[in-house]
Structures are given as C-alpha cells and as structure tokens.
Design a protein around this nucleic acid. Sequence first.
DNA 1: CCCGTTATTGGACACTTGCGCAACAGCGGC
DNA 2: GCCGCTGTTGCGCAAGTGTCCAATAACGGG
Lengths: 217, 217
Amino acid sequence: MARMARSERRDAIVEAALAVARRKGLGATSVRDVAREMGSSSGLIHHYFDSMDDVLAAAFERIAGEDLTQTEIMLDDADEPREVIAEFLRSYAPVGDDWAFQLWLDAWAEAARRPHLREASSRLNLAWAALLERTIRAGVADGSFRCGDPAAAAWRILSLVDGLALQVVAHQTIVDRADMLAWAAAAAESELGLANGALGVGHATPLAAPLATPPRA
Amino acid sequence: MARMARSERRDAIVEAALAVARRKGLGATSVRDVAREMGSSSGLIHHYFDSMDDVLAAAFERIAGEDLTQTEIMLDDADEPREVIAEFLRSYAPVGDDWAFQLWLDAWAEAARRPHLREASSRLNLAWAALLERTIRAGVADGSFRCGDPAAAAWRILSLVDGLALQVVAHQTIVDRADMLAWAAAAAESELGLANGALGVGHATPLAAPLATPPRA
DNA sequence: CCCGTTATTGGACACTTGCGCAACAGCGGC
DNA sequence: GCCGCTGTTGCGCAAGTGTCCAATAACGGG
C-alpha cells in the first residue's frame, strides 16, 4: 500500500479499527480485520501499536472523544444552561441500533481485560462528568438551577442516562428512546430544582422509529 | 468421568461455566475452559448445549437468577418497604472487585452478538425492575412512600444504580462504593418522597476497603 | 545516483476458538 | 448374561487469535 507519513498512517489504522468495531463490536475486532479493512498487511498495525489493546483504546478514544468535543462546543455556543442539559439528554439518547453506545458497553466490559482500554474509558467518563458538573455550576451561578451538590448531581445524571441507554441498546425491547428521554428529563429537572417539563424534553418523541413496538412492562 | 443423570450433568456444566466466568469473564469463557474445569472432554458440553451461547446464557441466568430470588425472599421477610429499598441498595452496591456485576457488564456487551444471552439478560433486568416496582407500590399503599409513577421510578432507580455500579466496577478509581451508596440513596429518597437520610444508607460505609484511595474529581 | 531510513510485506509461530463425529463405556431392562 | 440406550471420550476440522521478524520496497538527503 502507498507509503504514508507516520501520523497519517496511525490515523488510518484508528479509522479502520473504528469501521470494523462499528460492524462487529470493539471486543470482536481483530488485527487481521483491521488490516483487511485498510487493505494492508497485519504486520503494519504492530509497527504502529504495541498491542491490540492499544489499537482498541485509540479507536475508542477517537469516537468517544469526538462526541465529547462536539458537546463541549455546543456548551460554549449555548447561552441557557437549561438548553445545554436538554441537548445533552437528547444527544445522549441512542437512536436506532446505536453503535456508538454499543462501543461504550464493549469498553466497560473489556475494561477488565484490557488495561489501556480501561484507562481510556475511565478518562472519558470522567471528562463527561466534569463537563456536566461545569454546566450545572454555570446554571447555579446564573440562577437557572438550584443544586446543593453539583458534583454528585452530575454523576447521578450521567449514571442514570448511562443505565437507561444501556437498556435501550442492549435489550431493545424493554425501554425505548421515548421512555428514556422522558424519565431522564424528569430526574434532571428534580435534580436541578426545575419545574416539571421545564427542560422541554420527553413526552412524544416521534423520532423513535417503531422498529418493533415492545410489550411494555 | 463418572456417568451422570441428564439434569445433574447440565447443572454441573453450568456450575463449571460459572466458575470459569468468575475468573475470566463471561465473554472470555470457552468450551474447553468449561470442560477442563469439570475435568471432562469438551464434546460433552455440546452433548447438552447446542452452542456456547446457550451455555453462557444458562450460566448467567443461574447467578443473576439466584441474586434475584434472594432479594425476593428478603422482600417477603421485611415488613417495612423502606427497609427493603435500603437493603436493595446495599446489596446492589459492588464490594471489592465484584465479579457478579462484571457478569452483567459482559452480558450487556455480549448481548449484541449472543441472542440467547441477550434474551436471558433482558428477562432478568425486567424482573429486577418489576420487583422494585412492586416494592414501591407496596410502600405507596401503606403510606411510607409518595410516588406518582412507580414504574418510571423503578426504572430510574434501577438504571441509576446500574450506571453507578458500572463506574465502580469498570473503572475502580473514579467512583467508589461509599459515593455510590450515598448518591443512590439520595436519589431514591427524593424519588419516593422520603426525607433526606431516611433510608439510613450512605455516609460512612466503612466496608469499602481503601484498595487505592482515588483522586476524586 | 546511491544509500540510509523507514514504511510495508507476508508468512511463521504457538495457540485458541466452536463444533461435529466415530468410537467406547457403563447402566437399566429383559 | 446380553442388548440397547445414552453418557462420555478424544480427536479432527477449519478457522481464528496476537505477536514477532526477516525480507522488500519506496522515499528523501547527500
């Protein structure tokens, strides 16, 4: 394959790994898969990464990092902290068979066996919580929120949203996107001292295509 | 190996699979691992299970089912719904490197690739939510809780606890058991119309051995 | 133009994976 | 005591795994 500069090739490998992970999951992505995707030999990957763990960690960090940056930009653009939280919830809620969130599931499970992947997922999760905490503090400062413990509230909102998204993605049938949004919004409103429905999220989210209308509990 | 009756052998296989999964994780458990653990040939496992997916699903169902039954018994014994919720939180919070919860992480991730495992994890998650909902309804009925939507509250509490436990287990350093308990209790109290601290959970849980006191965010 | 650097190859290595199948062994019924 | 049922073996198969390395190819500087 065409010779490439060191940093470009690294990028290409990460990109290819991501493309495979999107189809097969992070945990099921192998060196040869990535090489085939890139149209190169498998040896090349080990010329840039010490181990498969590193490749997966880099790939995961790329995606999750992008999502994070995107949200950070949104945070800077928005003027109302309330709108930031609302948009956070909307963007976090998985759409269809959400492969990005499936990557998080894989990362959490694989963390036990892949130190570098654990390191990456740990760092990114922390960054998400920090971002949320910052937004809450901003809202408290400008008087739109009431919240006694922003750090705790941030972890609670993040964890709730993770737990709900997990149900949506792992078992499509139990909880759907609309439920998730409505429930998460209600919890966030209570957490931030907002009136019911103040976030303007939840109740009727026609986006959730009825893949298979589930028997609700 | 000694000949066994059909149902006993099935049990033995599930038990062995569990022993392996405890050490290596559900996703990394192989036919040969299970056979070695049982001291038998690998062919034997396929004589009882059509595929590895089935073995893992059965193993997961065994453990998670046991935990569920245990909690159901506790629920029947306890008289105060408040005490049931408190005990639920305490028993759900992972201790040390909690291998049972790691099994859940594996199950959620593997669900995408193993239909039977997904089926089992889906069913069990639903059962947990139902149990919680029942408890909440009981509490509302006898006047100890105030809650407008017990089903939604059940899913919220369960998801929050899953999301927090996930942080504790997957990234040991970020959130610890004491945080998790305190935060989950606070959320549950608010959710159920209880006074702050009414559940008597959280704040000072000396059980959480300081494996490595983490740099908190 | 040559030469050192380095990206890239492709296969070797030592394993592991899930699954299938002919053969064998041990028990219960006759 | 023999026969048939079935639990059990042990190996074969085809494919896959991460890692390593000698050989090759392409580029830039001298």
